[in-house]
Amino acid sequence: MTRFRARVSADGDSACWRTLARRALRAGIAPERLDWIEDGKDDDLFPVDAPWPEEDPARAPVLSRAALTLIETALCHSDPVRHDLAYRLVWRLQDEAGLLAVSTDADVARLRRMAQAVRRDSHKMTAFVRFREQPGCNGRRRFCAWFEPDHHILRRVAPFFANRFTDMDWLIATPRGSIAWDGETLDVRSGAFTRPELADDLDQLWRTYYGATFNPARVKIQAMKSEMPRKYWRNLPETNDIPALLAGADARVRRMAAQQAAPAPAFHHSLRKRLPRVPEDRD
């Protein structure tokens, strides 16, 4: 049985996959006979791709808007099986229109999980990017950030940053590409950056806040880690203080407990003389 190949870009762009999937459906190529190959991941076993069968103009592939949205999200996943899985699902959807509702189906469940992972990664990027100020020019302030996403999410999250940080220039560099904004153009590029050393004077004040808002009487390390996994820590300035905060927590609580009720400060007594509603001093 002849096997066919579809070559797609590796950066989560769904346009190429859509074109090829539509053609493959028209040509009637079953998913088990189609190999999806990412750019740069070629093997040399079959140097020449077999030509695809003629497309049948009578076949009109259909895909609901909801299905397309789900698939486009899942295609941002970094798992190389995503193209194959997405095509198999589209193939099956042609005969089983209600398939997407069957979350207990293995293919549907897997695609949904991939989409979920992409949404989570995108959400974490909006949360954990830290802009560091750089010398500006032309009166506009300029910031740089470094982030390490798990999936191909730059195009998905770029509008969030442009809608929020509109009045400043910024660049977010990642191992998968970059997003830049200059007040007019939102520029998303692929191509790896290396991690730069970034610093900002405000980081120290932020760490002061982080330490002060922590309540040493309720240590819940697991709750913190499940929402802010270790892999993000090295790019978050505040996480440098976590070991010291934890080490000092017990002593702080013991100090609070041992603190005897000292005499109230002077202004407390003068207040009580002024405010008629206050009942007699209880001390």
Binding site: F214, E227, M228
Partner: peptide, 21 residues
Amino acid sequence: GGLGSAGGGGICHAYAPDGRC
């Protein structure tokens, strides 16, 4: 115009060791 956006699902930018966002 200006700076900032809102109206999404809410974002927790960090978690303290007390587990709070």
